[in-house]
Nucleic acid binder design. Structure first.
Lengths: 332, 332
DNA sequence: TTGTATGCGTTATCAG
DNA sequence: CTGATAACGCATACAA
């Protein structure tokens, strides 16, 4: 309730001195400083940051645009992001888009109207995406996939997928099913390329029937797995494009009496916390979610503050984690 | 870049008219309205919300204080929260406290300095908590437990726990282990009371040795379960105070050759998404996370807007969900 | 219905 | 080192 003027009056100095005492104490005499601090304590002065932000034309907030915060990979990422933001004095506005463009626009509008200083984009924006973020607003893309323009933090999805499928092939698998995300999702596209790369280098022909489409939810994984159960010549291994679909698929396979990994190997992607605790534990690719979050925030703040970027794109390494859901193909 | 003044100049009206055209169009003639809109389009005017917020002494943002956003129950809650906030034109500032009081204070300070209009508190604040939120700042407690002061959204933890343990008893279990949260956590306290209630009404004596303390993480559940494996007279059922610890415990039990539910039943709490997909699927208590999120936001906004509260505390119903992790006790 | 003028709390400029 | 004062962009009381 009390403003800088009250403090000035009580302290017997000008408002300018109070302001200086707060933002550059070294420019103020020890005597004034003391009087100001005493006055601040006396009237319980809390600076009005709304006014400060208005004056400095900065909100000191960034929005994070995320497809679904309930996805454990994203929540891990965001946790790291928030941590870094807080360290640097920035707030993070949660922008859960739930896949709708309308909500996304709403958040973009927030930075256009100065309520946020920049955006961290976790939604993989396909090239045909209509509402691209205006070029003049600070933004870093951290969706992890290729085909993004502007500053980005990402992993090499294609190479990671190839590593995984190479491994399955090394175990003797030749018919390797895929549970993919939606067809036009950039993650799907990149990882599918990696899958094809691996097949190609092993001389295995690509079979379209081995691709089951999901949408990255457990439920979709559960459904997709039926496609494999019912095949006359079913795959001996399945490469799922994320852990959640793999976990859903395991449910189906086990219910159908297919043993994992004896009858069928299955792999995931992301290494969410549950991958280690499901039964059997899941062979997967670990993304450095926290590292990505930190770096994305650092990069965005650099852009906002107008500092030069040492690199406009940063590709982080993934880790290949072998657990119990994969085994050599059965000799039958 | 262009301000309301530019619009006024181009439109040939006063700034007041432009302002009114935006916030109360009904008070402006159709003619002026049209000129204003044309001018807005012409100069691509975007109102400076920083100025508007400053002027109206409101930030139109609320902070949500959460112990750990990576916990799936919380992320579900927050998703609903954000949804509602966006509908009402509010932003949500993510405040992941990670259990530290310092970070919590930082966020409380944010509303004291006008950067947020209120707080939704998900952290269960024990009575001895040092940094309670000042009474004059709008706040609703949504941690779900009793012993909170001020407006609150919660469930009846005690009754829910009793329901669960009653069920185990009805299956013939008499030695029922507990994997609890930290001892002084209000959730732990409430749910333990429910456990004791159930024992009491069944005439079973409470045995302190059957309580294993965890901290609501999967890892702690995994460890806690060892306590039961090594007992000479081990429990035939385990009531875990959340799903994650239950899932961790299942890992240990299965590794020790204890079959679930044949040799030991196990139950959880929260009904996170994975509870349905783990093996065996988990009998648990479902909390209406989304409903709670919505209600908490509604209640907070009412407080912020100064509207009267119809009720200061709201207890939401839980749902008891029986899956495959529980079975009648073995006759041996 | 419209315009003029004032003030919101702070920072920054410029004299002293 | 300090003080007076002008912005910042918008909303609104008041007058027309």
């Amino acid at each position: 309730m009390s403003s800088i003027r009250d403090v000035a009056r009580i302290a017997g100095v000008s408002v300018a001195t109070v302001s200086r005492a707060l933002s550059m104490p070294e420019k103020v005499s020890a005597e004034s400083l003391e009087k100001v601090h005493a006055a601040i304590a006396q009237v319980d002065y809390k600076p009005n940051m709304l006014a400060r932000n208005f004056r400095s034309a900065r909100s000191y907030a960034v929005v994070v645009l995320v497809p679904d915060i309930a996805n454990p990979f994203y929540s891990l990422f965001i946790r790291a992001l928030e941590d870094r933001a807080q360290q640097k004095g920035y707030a993070v506005l949660l922008g859960d888009t739930r896949g709708t463009h309308e909500r996304e626009l709403e958040y973009i509008r927030r930075v256009e109207t100065r309520l946020a200083d920049g955006i961290i984009q976790l939604r993989p924006s396909s090239e045909k995406s209509l509402n691209n973020i205006p070029a003049d607003i600070p933004c870093v893309n951290a969706c992890g996939c290729e085909y993004t323009t502007g500053p980005a933090i990402r992993i090499d999805n294609r190479a990671a997928a190839k590593t995984m499928v190479d491994y399955l092939i090394s175990l003797g698998h030749k018919r390797i099913g895929v549970i993919s995300g939606l067809k036009d999702n950039p993650h799907t596209v990149d990882r599918l390329e990696g899958y094809k790369d691996a097949l190609r280098s092993a001389g295995i022909e690509f079979d379209r029937d081995l691709i089951a489409e999901g949408d990255f939810t457990m439920w979709s994984g559960l459904n997709a797995a039926f496609q494999f159960c019912n095949m006359k010549n079913r795959p001996t291994a399945v490469f799922s494009m994320n852990d959640e679909m793999a976990i859903g698929a395991m449910q189906t396979l086990k219910a159908q009496g297919i043993r994992i990994p004896e009858d069928m190997s299955i792999t995931g992607f992301d290494d969410i916390a549950y991958a280690k605790y499901c039964d059997p534990s899941l062979t997967t690719i670990s993304q450095p979610a926290e590292e990505m979050g930190k770096m994305a925030m650092d990069m965005l703040l650099r852009i906002i503050e107008g500092e030069p970027l040492s690199q406009t794109e940063c590709v982080l390494p993934t880790e290949f984690i072998i657990r119990k859901s994969t085994a050599p193909v059965k000799i039958s």
